[in-house]
Amino acid sequence: MTYRIFKDKMAGSVMAALTLAAILLVVVMAMELCVKSAPILRHYSLWTLLTESQWKPMKGEFGFLPFLAGTFWCTVVAIVLALPVSLLMAVYLTEYARPQLRTYAYPLLDILAGLPSVIYGVWGSLLIVPWISHTVAPFADRQSSGYTVLAGGIVLGVMILPLLISLFMELFANVSQNLHEASTALGATRWQTVKHVVLRQSAPGMMAAIVLALSRTMGETIAVLMVCGNLIIIPNSLLDACYPIPALIANNYGEMLSVPMYESALMLAAFLLFILVVMMNIGSRIILKRFRS
């Protein structure tokens, strides 16, 4: 009995230590980024860095506004394109599709979710970019190379589709069968049951899934870098090029030692991305509490 109690306590201690280590890892990452960002914050105010649009490290100008705008545009386009498609596909696969179709759908979604981001980037460069350049831009009476916000949003939207579909399907499958039967017994159609029972019961989990997908899009690097154009401008339309924060870090990290304050500026960019993701997760927790109440 004593040995069993010892093993139980030891297992609890190990799990508590691992949990604490995971929490400390996030704190250490935040502290390290904050320390590395301190030099540039001592020379420039945060407001100036966030609102200026000039990025000329050789002249000591570090304006992050174009990169923040590029990140925002790509993220919004991706979620706007992916959310309705993933939601409808998840509803169909969960509520309408035959079991045989679901059997094949799950492995395919896992394959799509596991593909390296560079494959999505190559696909976007070969198909999406020429399509925008030769079809979408002329239709809008514009000239464009195709390396645009729209290309980045489409590629990111396709990347997060498997993630959102899998999460939504899991949420819908966990809705109590008794609720389905009660809704049907009251005369509701299948779509009415989905709309008023399944979606309402899954709303908190759906919000968490959307935030997880947003975090994925904000941090994506290679695929965005390959299709967005990487021009330091503030995009005014979907057919303008952009330069998201992850692409900035990936493109310039090797050059940071040759220019004063460059390293600190890039670390600040990473810190801003970290803060954005943390704020989104905190916001999702607040929304979840309101839903549950």
Rank of each mutant, 00 (worst) to 15 (best):
Thr184Ala: 15
Leu199Gln: 05
Ala213Asp: 04
Met169Cys: 10
Ala188Phe: 03
Arg98Ile: 07
Asp141Ile: 08
Val198Ser: 02
Ile160Trp: 06
Ala203Cys: 03
Leu212Tyr: 12
Val211Lys: 01
Ile165Thr: 14
Gly124Ala: 08
Ser176Lys: 12
Gly187Tyr: 08
Ser144Val: 09
Leu112Glu: 00
Leu179Met: 06
Leu126Ala: 15
Ala90Asp: 09
Asn174Trp: 03
Trp191Asp: 02
Arg142Ile: 10
Pro99Trp: 12
Trp131Gly: 05
Tyr120Gln: 06
Asp141Lys: 14
Tyr96Ala: 12
Leu167Asp: 06
Leu109Arg: 00
Leu150Trp: 00
Ser125Ile: 14
Ser166Tyr: 06
Glu95Gly: 05
Ala113Met: 05
Ser215Trp: 04
Ala137Ser: 05
Leu109Thr: 07
Asp110Met: 11
Ala203Gln: 02
Ile165Pro: 04
Val149Met: 04
Gly152Thr: 03
Glu181Ile: 01
Pro99Arg: 10
Arg98Asn: 12
Thr103His: 13
Ile111Asn: 00
Arg102Thr: 12
Phe168Cys: 08
Val211Glu: 03
Thr189Ile: 01
Val122Cys: 07
Glu95Lys: 06
Val129Pro: 09
Ala203Ile: 07
Gly187Cys: 01
Leu212Val: 12
Ala182His: 03
Met89Arg: 09
Pro130Ala: 09
Gly187Val: 06
Trp123Asn: 00
Glu181His: 13
Leu108His: 06
Thr184Leu: 13
Ala185Arg: 01
Asn174Thr: 04
Gln177Met: 13
Ala185Ser: 15
Val198Tyr: 05
Gly187Ser: 04
Tyr106Met: 14
Ser125Asn: 13
Ile165His: 02
Pro130Ile: 01
Val155Trp: 08
Val118Glu: 09
Ala90Phe: 10
Val198Cys: 08
Met159Glu: 04
Tyr120Ile: 10
Ile154Gly: 07
Gly187Ile: 05
His180Leu: 12
Leu214Ala: 13
Leu214Pro: 02
Asn174Gln: 14
Ala209Ser: 14
Val129Arg: 10
Leu108Ala: 15
Asp110Lys: 12
Gly124Tyr: 10
His180Glu: 15
Ala90Glu: 10
Thr103Glu: 14
Val155Phe: 10
Ile165Gly: 01
Ala140Val: 02
Pro107Trp: 03
Leu167Thr: 11
Ser145Gly: 15
Trp191Phe: 15
Leu150Ala: 04
His196Cys: 00
Pro138Cys: 02
Leu161Met: 14
Ala213Glu: 05
Phe172Met: 09
Gly157Cys: 05
Ser133Gln: 14
Trp131Val: 02
Ile154Trp: 01
Arg102Asp: 11
Met159Asp: 05
Arg102Val: 12
Leu163Met: 14
His180Ala: 11
His180Val: 04
Pro204Asp: 03
Gly187Ala: 00
Ser215Thr: 13
Leu101Gly: 02
Tyr120Asn: 07
Gly121Ser: 02
